[in-house]
Design a protein around this nucleic acid. Structure first.
Lengths: 220, 220, 220, 220
DNA sequence: AATGAATGAGAGTTCATTCAT
DNA sequence: TATGAATGAACTCTCATTCAT
């Protein structure tokens, strides 16, 4: 798979072109979420979309570009959830966050993790952009005191981990998990406001900036 | 990759044999952790181990058997950490858990997630066995009241998620993350003892039993 | 080589597809007849057909499916010769049989034996079907008295043996061999009608039924 | 497999060496007859012989040399049968030939054909030598008139074909086949003495000399 | 002499990608 | 534009052969 990403090979000006591209991206997301990386072949996507393999390459330069489109679409959903939660009063944020994330992951369990953790090498620019916005919005859930960036990373990773595993295990739709996750998020948020087990103003070796360079795990 | 796992093709009797098999498994773990599933080819493992591809197949029936050996070795380390933590007095458990997990993941960041989340289809029997023991030990960290099995799943997923992401981002070795994670674990444990936001004795749709059936996400 | 035979992977709809599949089967027959089992590699077939290895797998699921197609084509030719001979008056049968078989084996000496005697394990169902028809038609060459099934087996094996060896030795096209073989077939047919050196109605431990179970020599 | 045949790498002077070499050849014949060319691997032979693969290469330069030894042993048995038959009075020859050949092929059905028809490339010198003797002895079964060499080839091929196929089908040991084959051989011999359907002194394009050049079918 | 661990060329097969129609 | 046949690099796995012990 080529590393270079040319994105859309053609800007779909006509109505039908845009529709075809949409169909392909949707099929790709379904194939990736349902069959994992092992089943994510260009021919499988074409078949799932009901078009020929030639048509896939008419709209996407290569497999990486197709994957990029899937990624972008998912990212938009997740960022919308985060923005929604940050707009709520602090007391409702944990609940809004958890509910939104559960909803966002419901239809395609595993997609988020597949996209973030196992991505084949890409140029990463778009991912970095997304990750920055993602962490910024997560940080907005916390009051400014302490190290909101670090807390954002920890909470984001924890929530993602639980939701992904639950999606795999099949318990994502249950009310119990929702409440348990809200407990986790609330407890963590509260503990940080009350002051952690360490003195305020401790060094902060992990920053949002560090997170943005997280290319080490690419291609996993 | 064959579904059936025959594991070791021959039991190495000579000194050299055992050593070679060890070298291969170690190299396989390094390749998987460092290059992800995309880079996990039998030739890459052979090259990393400094042996010929024939030697890999002298000890492992196929790629799946090799993967199985890597999995088994990692599982043993993780279970040891959990057993260690559960043996401590309650007040020290969170710290022991976090420290041990960080150490276990340090040399091979991403290995645990690669093994659990992104695995190609395998027969799953060994994984189920591991997962049962894994969750049982996690549950042992909680007092019996409430739904320890559910809490175990949530905490396990959260800790794994944070450690994996931190390992990818490169901040795993920092003391700050260690304290932050301990805060997360402690806060969650404490919140569950104090009583969550829902009435005691709520229904528990997600149980350890459910977790054991978590084959839905395989091959992701 | 897989035991299960899926035969044609895709039914070629376009003109070019059908032609390519034909070219591949023809090349496969040529490779098998000319180079034997040792030279029958998928890459050799692709090269002989003048196509890429990918094209071979576009039409045939695996090596066994390709072999199956070769087998089927040859079987049809042989059965046609036998049906032709059986339709003649008794006096001409031996000549018609020998002539037809020589013609059928001419372009691909060794193919018949390669297919029947030296085949790697296959599921055998198709072979059994062919063999039943093959022996039935051979038996039709004899009058019903005596044990036509046994005589059919003996004559079939004898004729095949001579033709194959002659094809290998290069004398298949000679008129002398044709006459000699006709002598053999005629003499045997006549001897059986006249009564053999044993009493009529002897026990017949070898039957057509036994022949149909002749899977013991597979993979030779 | 190397084309060059170095035969025995060492002359087994000691008693034990000779015994080991014998064991290996016997095992090789068993493996070849029982598992066909597909199962005829050097490691399988070593395992069947109960020695290490290293020991096989101690006595045989390569796989071809091992095969050559198997071939030679079988050839000796067949030539002995032919010599025996030729020494009998004409009336008993057909019976003696058939009986001897059936006995020779009994323990290893398929070995003769495997050796003659499917041999990987070898230098052929030994085979030619065998084949010359083989046809000479077969020709000795016929009176000198006519073309004894051609008749020898035809009869040899016919008898081999029937015996091999019968061995495969499992009916080799039956008395009925023995009598049927004797009928075939007797009828053919008698027909040639009485004069065939063609004038005496016809041209003879196929000669023993031609047969000796039969390298076209090698590696089949 | 005997052993069996190690080697690596080569075989079967997949799949991202191109291009003639 | 859309199609799908064709391509070939790369991957998994086998087995003849060597050589240190």
């Amino acid at each position: 798979m080529a590393t270079r990403v040319r994105e859309m090979r053609k800007s779909p000006r006509q109505q039908r072109s845009r529709a075809t591209a949409e169909v392909i991206v949707t099929a790709a997301a379904r194939v990736l979420a349902g069959g994992g990386w092992g089943g994510f072949t260009t021919n499988a996507v074409a078949a799932a979309a009901g078009v020929s393999i030639g048509s896939v390459y008419q709209y996407f330069a290569d497999k990486a570009a197709l994957l990029e489109a899937v990624r972008r679409r998912h990212h938009e959903q997740v960022l919308a959830v985060l923005a929604e939660a940050a707009a709520r009063p602090p007391a409702e944020r944990a609940q809004a966050l958890i509910d939104g994330m559960i909803v966002a992951h419901g239809p395609a369990p595993g997609l988020h993790h597949a996209l973030l953790q196992q991505r084949p090498a890409s140029d990463g620019a778009l991912d970095r952009e997304f990750e920055a916005e993602y962490l910024r919005l997560y940080a907005a859930l916390f009051p400014d005191g302490g190290d909101a960036a670090l807390a954002a990373r920890v909470l984001a990773s924890a929530v993602e981990g639980v939701i992904h595993d639950a999606a795999c295990a099949g318990g994502l739709e249950g009310a119990v998990l929702r409440r348990e996750l809200t407990t986790l998020a609330s407890a963590y948020m509260a503990a940080r406001v009350a002051g952690g087990p360490w003195p305020e103003g401790a060094t902060r070796p992990i920053t949002a900036g560090t997170a943005l360079d997280a290319q080490a795990c690419e291609d996993q």
